[in-house]
Simulated assay, not measured.
Amino acid sequence: MYSNRKVVQAIAFGLLIFPGYGAANEQGQEGTEQKCPKLSFDEVRARYKPALSQIGEAQIDRAIFWERMKEIANANEVFRFKARKKNKATGEVTFVEKEVAFHKNVVNSEHRAVINAIFDRWEATGGGHPKHLALLLGTASRETCGSFLSSVGEACGCTRTCGKDEYKDAPYGKKDKCGRAYFGRGLVQLTKKINYENVGENLGIPLGDYPNLAYEQPFSIMMLVDGVKGRWYAGKPLKTYLNDEASNWVLARESVNPNSPNKAATGYLACRFYDAIQPAYKKTAPAQDPSLCMKLKNP
């Protein structure tokens, strides 16, 4: 169970708490049968106006970062890795070769706006180790197919905006009696009802009742930055894998999705993002071997 202290922290970050949310929860818990929320999503969205207005100490020189990112994107580097694939019917495990690369449009204005907003949130919440910031960007890039759009949903694959309300390929993606489905949404592709409820409690929003709130960019950025920094998801602290001496980009993925068969892909993206963050970091940041990123492998 998450403490009320985290909800208070969320308020301090500039959130507007949903009027009547606590009362609605209590009402829904009466008796043995759960009641469906009465307000429509549009009504909730109209009342709920998320904001990321806090400004923290500037720790990343944006101009240096984007100049370096332009070089990385224009290098046309392709990272290939092997991933485990399990046959659901037979249980047989095989290995398939996959690849990932930076899209050149990672430096366009649309992507810049989202990445700069992630920087802003990271700085507003106290910053941290620059390698951890790189993992946040690698995670968001991988989970949204390189688009950095919070409107990406698992039910629609890599489509920029997901309009589907169900994902029948996974048990958690099927609609409940209230018409809600808890498939992956947003920059972290949050899945499963319990996770929506827990993250919603941390943010002080009715995410369990209205899962589409995860598509709202300010909330999605908080779910990424605050969630990974606050260990809302899984695994050991990031400093276990990423610190001044260690650059275990692949296993660091366990801080969000320990069951991912594509950890190497996220690790590669994070590693290359760090190559742009390191010279742009306004404090001392450890350098890394430029060849490291292409040597990464799945465990």
Rank of each mutant, 00 (worst) to 15 (best):
residue 9 Q to G: 11
residue 59 Q to C: 06
residue 148 F to D: 02
residue 286 P to D: 07
residue 125 T to H: 12
residue 126 G to Q: 08
residue 75 A to T: 08
residue 138 G to L: 04
residue 282 K to F: 07
residue 173 G to L: 06
residue 299 P to K: 05
residue 179 G to W: 12
residue 252 A to E: 00
residue 162 C to A: 12
residue 251 L to Y: 05
residue 107 V to W: 12
residue 224 L to G: 06
residue 163 G to S: 08
residue 156 C to Y: 08
residue 270 A to I: 03
residue 6 K to Q: 12
residue 165 D to S: 13
residue 221 I to F: 11
residue 168 K to R: 15
residue 268 Y to C: 05
residue 79 F to K: 04
residue 176 D to S: 08
residue 169 D to P: 00
residue 103 H to T: 03
residue 83 A to G: 08
residue 142 R to T: 10
residue 269 L to P: 01
residue 41 F to M: 12
residue 149 L to N: 12
residue 147 S to Q: 09
residue 140 A to D: 02
residue 245 E to F: 05
residue 175 K to Y: 02
residue 18 F to K: 03
residue 45 R to W: 09
residue 167 Y to K: 09
residue 277 I to A: 09
residue 13 F to E: 14
residue 42 D to G: 09
residue 165 D to N: 07
residue 188 V to A: 12
residue 102 F to M: 12
residue 194 I to L: 04
residue 65 F to V: 08
residue 168 K to A: 15
residue 288 Q to I: 15
residue 6 K to E: 15
residue 245 E to A: 14
residue 267 G to Y: 01
residue 77 E to L: 12
residue 159 T to C: 02
residue 29 Q to C: 07
residue 19 P to S: 11
residue 212 N to P: 00
residue 33 E to W: 03
residue 264 A to T: 03
residue 247 S to N: 14
residue 231 R to I: 08
residue 99 E to A: 05
residue 272 R to A: 05
residue 262 N to D: 14
residue 265 A to N: 03
residue 39 L to N: 11
residue 10 A to P: 07
residue 218 P to T: 10
residue 148 F to W: 13
residue 280 A to T: 10
residue 166 E to V: 07
residue 271 C to I: 06
residue 30 E to I: 14
residue 123 E to C: 08
residue 130 P to Q: 07
residue 281 Y to S: 01
residue 152 V to I: 14
residue 15 L to A: 12
residue 87 N to G: 10
residue 242 L to P: 07
residue 135 L to D: 01
residue 110 E to N: 13
residue 41 F to W: 13
residue 43 E to H: 09
residue 271 C to A: 10
residue 217 Q to D: 00
residue 268 Y to Q: 07
residue 68 R to M: 09
residue 48 Y to D: 13
residue 230 G to A: 14
residue 141 S to C: 15
residue 238 L to W: 04
residue 122 W to V: 11
residue 134 A to F: 05
residue 133 L to T: 04
residue 45 R to Y: 11
residue 120 D to W: 00
residue 66 W to G: 10
residue 292 L to F: 04
residue 279 P to I: 11
residue 236 K to L: 14
residue 281 Y to L: 07
residue 83 A to M: 08
residue 66 W to E: 09
residue 41 F to P: 04
residue 66 W to P: 11
residue 249 W to G: 00
residue 210 Y to T: 04
residue 157 G to R: 01
residue 174 K to F: 00
residue 285 A to F: 06
residue 42 D to L: 11
residue 175 K to T: 14
residue 230 G to H: 01
residue 197 E to Q: 14
residue 271 C to Y: 03
residue 226 D to T: 06
residue 12 A to S: 15
residue 143 E to V: 06
residue 291 S to G: 02
residue 296 L to R: 03
residue 81 F to N: 03
residue 53 S to Q: 15
residue 250 V to D: 04
residue 153 G to L: 04
residue 101 A to G: 01
residue 64 I to N: 01
residue 168 K to G: 01
residue 287 A to C: 01
residue 246 A to C: 12
residue 194 I to E: 14
residue 203 L to N: 04
